[in-house]
Design a protein around this nucleic acid. Structure first.
Lengths: 206, 206
DNA sequence: ACTGATCTTTGACAGGGTGTCTACGATAAT
DNA sequence: ATTATCGTAGACACCCTGTCAAAGATCAGT
C-alpha cells in the first residue's frame, strides 16, 4: 500500500516497526536519480516519463513522492546539494572578495547551464518565495561574501545584501534566457553577467 | 458557428462575405476587457472565470480567442499599448537621459504593480523568447534611451543595450518578487531598483 | 526455510481544465 | 423578410494529476 511508508519515517525508526525494505530505498533513489536527469533537463516532463526513465510505474513514483511539486522539490534539493559541494570545493570563503564572487558565479552559472529546470518559471517562482529552504545554503554563501565585501569596503554597502542576492539571481536568469534564446553566446553572456554584477555590487575596480 | 469567424478575416474582407456583425465585435471586446481585469490580476484564472466576468459562455471566448495562451497574448498586447501610451505621456525621449530613465522605470513599475500577470512565470517566459512582438515597443523606447545615454557618455557603453534591457526587466521582476513576498516595502524596492539600474548602466553620479 | 509484512504492479477511476463539435434559438445585415 | 452570422447549451474526447483496491512479487525477521 503505497503512501503509508512515510508515516513510519516520522517514527523514531525504532519500536515495533520493521525497518524499511531495501528495494523501497532502491526504488526511491532510482526515481530521484531519473527525476534529476529528466526533470532537470526537461522541466515540463510528465510524471509518467520520470517513471519510465526510472524503470518503475507511475504509481510507484507517487508512493515515494506524494505529488509532482514535491518531487520537483526533491530534485531541487539534490541539485542544491551538488551546488553546495561544488561551492565548497571552489573555496568561496577565502581570497579576495571579488575573486571569490567570480568563483561563486562560475559555479552557479555552470549549474544553470546543466539544469534548465533552474531557469524554469515554476521553479523560479518557488525559489523566490520559499527561500527558507535548504536551497538557502547556496545563497547563504553569497550573503557571507557580500557582507564580507561590504565590511571590507570592497563593495559598496548602500544596497542591502538581501536585495543584492535577489538581483544576482534575477540577472542569472536573464543571462540564461539570452543564451537559451540564442541572442548571445555563452561566453559573451558570462562576461556580461560578471561585469554587471560587479557594477551592481559597487566593486572598486573597472 | 463559432470559430469560423477568423477564416473570413484572412480574406480580403471583400467579395461576397457579409461584414462582421456588431455583437460579435462587442463580445470580443467585452471578453478582452474582462480578461485584462481577471487575468491581469489573477494570472492563474481559468477560461471559465474570464467568460463569467465578461457575461459570456466559455465557448464564446474560444470563438474569439482560439486558445488560452492566445487570449493571454491578447491581454499582454493591450497592456503593452497602455504602457506605450503612458510612456509617451511621460515624454521619455526628452530631458536628461538619467531623468528619462527614471521616468521609464516609474511608468513600467506602476504597470508591474497593477498587473501581476506581468510578473507571472508563464508570461515572463514568453516575454524573453517572443520579444519580436508588439511588446517590443516598450523595450524600443528603453533602447533608444540607452543608446542616447551611451552616445552622450552619460552611460557606460561597455555592456550592450540588448543585454541591459534584459537585465533591466530581470531586475524589475526581482523587485516585484520582493514586494510580493513581503520582504521589502514598495518604496524600499523602488529605490533599490532605481539605484541598481543606474549602477548597472554605469551612470555618472552617485 | 517459513511466515508475514512490505513493496510493486496492474487496472480502474474521479477530478479538473482545455479544446471541439453539434443542434438550436437569437440577432443583426442586406 | 430573408439569410447568414452569432451566442447558448449540452455533450464529448483528451491529457495530466492523484487515488484506490486487488493481486502478485519481494524482502525482513524468527
Amino acid at each position: 500500500m503505497p503512501g503509508g511508508r512515510l508515516d513510519n519515517m516520522s517514527e523514531i525508526t525504532g519500536g515495533r516497526c520493521r525497518r524499511r525494505r531495501s528495494d523501497a530505498e532502491r526504488s526511491a533513489a532510482a526515481v530521484l536519480d531519473a527525476a534529476v536527469q529528466v526533470l532537470g533537463r526537461h522541466p515540463d516532463a510528465k510524471v509518467e516519463q520520470v517513471a519510465a526513465a526510472s524503470g518503475v510505474t507511475r504509481q510507484t513514483v507517487y508512493a515515494h513522492y506524494p505529488s509532482r511539486p514535491r518531487l520537483v522539490a526533491a530534485v531541487i534539493d539534490r541539485i542544491t546539494a551538488e551546488a553546495v559541494a561544488a561551492l565548497d570545493a571552489a573555496d568561496v570563503d577565502s581570497g579576495t572578495v571579488t575573486e571569490a564572487l567570480l568563483r561563486w558565479l562560475d559555479v552557479t552559472w555552470r549549474l544553470f547551464d546543466r539544469y534548465p529546470l533552474l531557469r524554469h518559471p515554476s521553479v523560479a517562482a518557488i525559489e523566490q518565495e520559499d527561500s527558507e529552504r535548504q536551497h538557502a545554503a547556496v545563497n547563504e554563501r553569497l550573503e557571507r561574501l557580500i557582507r564580507r565585501g561590504q565590511a571590507t569596503g570592497e563593495f559598496d554597502d548602500t544596497l542591502s545584501p538581501a536585495w543584492l542576492i535577489s538581483a544576482t539571481i534575477a540577472l542569472g536568469h536573464a543571462a540564461g534566457g539570452e543564451v537559451a534564446a540564442g541572442r548571445m553566446t555563452t561566453a559573451q553572456t558570462a562576461a556580461a553577467l560578471r561585469h554587471s554584477i560587479l557594477r551592481l555590487y559597487g566593486a572598486r575596480e573597472p
